[in-house]
Amino acid sequence: MTVVSLRDRKRVDTRGKIVAAASALFDRHGLEDVTVDAIAAAADIGKGTVYNYFEAKEDIIVALLVDLDRKALTEIASLPAQGMSVGEALDAAAWKLIDNKAEYRPYVKAFLSRMFAAEDVSPELADYYDQLDEAVEALFERLLARPGMRRALPVDTLVLSFRTMHMGLMAQWAMEGPPYASARVLTRRHMALLAKGLML
């Protein structure tokens, strides 16, 4: 059993307070009009403490979205559901990681801007990507264990293909806006194409 130290619990609690305070302010005032000073005041901590956890307010947005996606990974662990085809299982996984952000489209746009502008991936985001890769790899292994499946490509290549498609689909989703009809259709089509490569 893993024992979490008091210091680690405090760090998690403080991080959670910052993210919750920032999210509430972003919802009320918009992303552009919220300052780090306002986030610190709302979280009842010093501005320096915010910077101990996040280099910029955009990194708080990244943390919020990563938290959403970590929850989605637990749902991906239950795929494929009974009766699902390979394409349907991959589509369900991809869409869980997109549709879970329906209330946070402006955050996704800010996240994509931050990610493409940053020199390096933040440690938190890198850790999440490791978890995503593990979850998607496990899904591919479950799918490949079915009768009639083949390993034409290494699983890590399949995972990279999934992630690349997912990134493009999320960008399409963010640019399109509600009701996200094109993004939904494209997700099904792209995951069906990826599935075909597993069944040849």
Rank of each mutant, 00 (worst) to 15 (best):
Y129I: 05
P123I: 03
M115Y: 07
A110H: 13
A63C: 15
Y107C: 12
L186Q: 04
S182I: 10
M170I: 06
E32V: 15
D133H: 06
N52I: 14
L79W: 07
F116I: 10
T187A: 00
L64G: 13
A181K: 05
R188N: 04
D44Y: 07
V108I: 15
I45V: 12
D37K: 14
A77N: 08
D127V: 12
R163E: 00
E75S: 03
A81G: 11
K101L: 09
A63K: 14
L79E: 05
A42D: 07
S78Q: 08
Y107K: 11
D133M: 06
Q131K: 12
L25E: 09
D130N: 07
K71E: 12
V185P: 01
R28V: 14
T164C: 02
P147D: 06
E134Y: 08
L153G: 05
T157H: 01
L139W: 06
F162H: 04
P179Y: 06
V136C: 00
A138T: 05
Y107P: 12
R150K: 03
A174K: 00
P80V: 08
R150S: 08
A81L: 10
V108E: 07
R105Q: 09
L65R: 14
R150I: 05
R163C: 00
P179F: 06
A152N: 04
K196A: 15
P106F: 13
Y51C: 05
D120G: 13
P178G: 02
Y180F: 04
P123W: 02
D13Q: 13
V36C: 14
A21E: 07
A41D: 08
I18Y: 10
V19L: 13
L186M: 08
R28A: 15
L194G: 01
G30H: 12
E134A: 07
S78L: 12
D33G: 15
D127S: 12
A102N: 02
L160P: 00
M115G: 09
L112T: 06
E88G: 07
A181E: 11
L112Y: 05
R163P: 00
M1R: 01
L153N: 05
E124W: 07
A152Y: 01
R15D: 10
E88A: 11
L125H: 10
E75P: 01
F162C: 00
K10R: 13
G197V: 03
T74C: 03
L31W: 12
A174G: 02
M165K: 06
V50M: 11
V34A: 14
A94T: 02
R9V: 02
V34M: 11
I39V: 14
